[in-house]
Nucleic acid binder design. Structure first.
Lengths: 209, 209
DNA sequence: GTCTATACAGAGATAGAC
DNA sequence: GTCTATCTCTGTATAGAC
């Protein structure tokens, strides 16, 4: 545990891997590129993490654990307030509790920005091990949001709710990935701030017509 | 050009690559797996396509060209009809012209289903060559839709329109990818039909509140 | 405990015989 | 068109230096 000295070998690997995974993708980033740029030996990855896949898991867990904690706390606050006022939670507040922590976390540091772009891709990764790791962390939030949304819109059939929530996830994760993506055509480049527009969009879609 | 005999070496490679790229992802699928399953020699890929990347482009182009033609025709019909009636095109009709051909094409054959799942991932691929190939084909449609949407909602600022269209693309592409994805948790599994719910969702989001 | 050097199997790409 | 041989680069594993 270094307090004010150089980052440890392990942290240098994590930081570099996060950046390169985000920029070039998991499979296209070689361990030699990571260790070369981090200035550590190739075998240090195997020593500290065991494999390239375990390294990716470590990259994900390091940021996703506190981020999901923030999301759950915000959802709990929305729920508590609604119960105290004897009303169902508002769709907009549920959406905000998911979106606002994500996008404001993204603005916090350069590393976080890379990580959020990486996460936006993780949900469509074909690699089962990686995706399951990611989905396991997301499951408690998904369950809580679905339960709260069902209370917010009691007359909406369960299947319709699932579909609309699914579309919502698509909007958010694509935004997480693509908002800092330079390869999109100029006209499609997004400008900040995004939170309010995204909350508006998915709230309108959720509540239907 | 074989009419009623066995598929050619080239077509066998295309069909097998389409299925394996969709199931396991581009980078995780080896040329040995493709050529082995297709029953052709490894070097046949290099001979017919030049490289693994060019093979992916061929897989994309074969299906995306006719699909985009159908989308453009449907958009043109919506536009023509609106002009004939002297009114701006309806947001819902524009959304349908993009979504309906995509999802009904997906239902047409097993190969198409695999292809649509692959496309749903292509838009977040980190590989620049692949993504640019894909975006080049999509650009005329994106431009036409943005132009029609601007006429449909003349009071909406351009930046807000871009953002909402972006969120729409996220919903559709995630649906294309994930609707046949078995690794999602049981509660999030989607059931057909999707077209109407998706059109409702993105129309409501587009039109705002 | 940390880290380095190095060996190994599998990948995509390519040249050239047939 | 097809196939073999071979090149480089990848992820992984291990033996041993400090």
């Amino acid at each position: 545990m270094n307090i004010q000295s150089e980052p440890s070998t392990k942290d240098r690997i994590l930081d570099t891997a996060e950046r390169l995974f985000s920029l070039s993708g998991y499979h296209s980033t070689s361990l030699r590129a990571i260790t070369g740029e981090a200035g550590v030996n190739l075998a240090a990855v195997n020593y500290h993490f065991g494999s390239k896949e375990s390294l990716l898991e470590a990259v994900i867990d390091r940021r996703l654990t506190p981020l999901n904690k923030a999301r759950l706390e915000m959802l709990a606050t929305v729920d508590r307030k609604a119960r105290a006022e004897g009303r169902p939670p508002a769709v907009r507040d549920i959406m905000s509790a998911f979106i606002e922590p994500t996008l404001s976390f993204r603005e916090s540091t350069d590393g976080a920005r890379h990580f959020i772009a990486l996460l936006g891709r993780a949900i469509v990764e074909p690699d089962d091990t990686v995706k399951k790791r990611f989905l396991n962390q997301m499951n408690p939030i998904i369950e809580l949001m679905l339960e709260m949304l069902a209370r917010a819109m009691p007359s909406l059939p369960a299947q319709a709710l699932i579909k609309r929530f699914h579309f919502t996830i698509g909007s958010l994760f694509f935004t997480m990935h693509a908002c800092c993506d330079d390869s999109m055509p100029e006209r499609m480049r997004l400008k900040e701030p995004l939170t309010e527009e995204l909350v508006n969009f998915v709230t309108a879609g959720m509540e239907g017509r």
